[in-house]
Design a binder for these strands. Structure first.
Lengths: 123, 123
DNA sequence: TTTGATACTTACAAAAATGTAGGTACTTGG
DNA sequence: CCAAGTACCTACATTTTTGTAAGTATCAAA
């Protein structure tokens, strides 16, 4: 979902997708549900994402007000990220989405093993 | 969210985003929650989307098993689209996402009018 | 023969998102 | 001087998504 979201014509589901719909946002948010994390921790927890992407995704989440970035003026640098109060309201939604996603995956793998000829990917 | 989704490493929220995360999918799904619709109806209901995009988005939704495409072999052509049984399980999720999106939009417009200097877009 | 109706398809172009590889800044400690 | 440690940033390339404009197929009716 594009980040260029028109507040007038865009539907409300699109607004939500625009907040959550980045390649690494869901996984980052799940890690942050466990509590504040430093940048390096998030990198280690998300080894398939590059530092650049993690930075970009965190910046957008911050811009949307769902996470808060705190800089401690030390050397070496110390920054941490945590959910804002508003960001915490995402938890039930993320859990619902995870739950539906589980069902979907189960369904997909079921269909794939039972009726492989219906799969457009492998057929 | 990319349609190239790795079922092994991808988290379940990503699976959901991969199904819902197209430019026109949410609005199409909402129209289909009202009942089956013909292609032309969906085009008229979604005037900002081109026929091409509507076709593409419907095809992906069909591929993911959330909608069903029925062709009546007539002239002129007659095709309709409806939610599958599985697709109907999306309704509560879509409603939750819409609800969170409303809150988000309210919050964003509130912030913009009250503290405009905090907005990165308009500031 | 041309038009109308419907549901598309194709070729091309532009925009957006993501990835790759490297560099930066700062201070402490050897 | 050099390395370590942390949190980035920059330039560039690739991939993915979306958009634009036009064409296609079929049969009936005018």
């Amino acid at each position: 979902m594009s980040r260029k979201y028109d507040w007038r014509t865009g539907c409300d589901v699109e607004a939500t997708l625009c907040v959550l719909g980045g390649r690494w946002k869901p996984v980052l948010l799940f890690h942050l549900l466990d509590g504040p994390k430093r940048f390096g921790e998030l990198c280690r927890l998300t080894p398939n994402a590059t530092q650049r992407m993690i930075t970009l995704q965190l910046r957008e989440l911050e811009e949307d007000g769902v996470i808060i970035r705190t800089v401690y003026p030390e050397v070496p640098p110390h920054v941490d990220y945590r959910l804002s109060e508003f960001g915490q309201t995402l938890e039930p939604l993320l859990l619902s989405m995870r739950s539906w996603g589980e069902d979907f995956k189960r369904r997909q793998s079921g269909l794939q093993s039972e009726i492989p000829e219906l799969s457009r990917e492998t057929g």
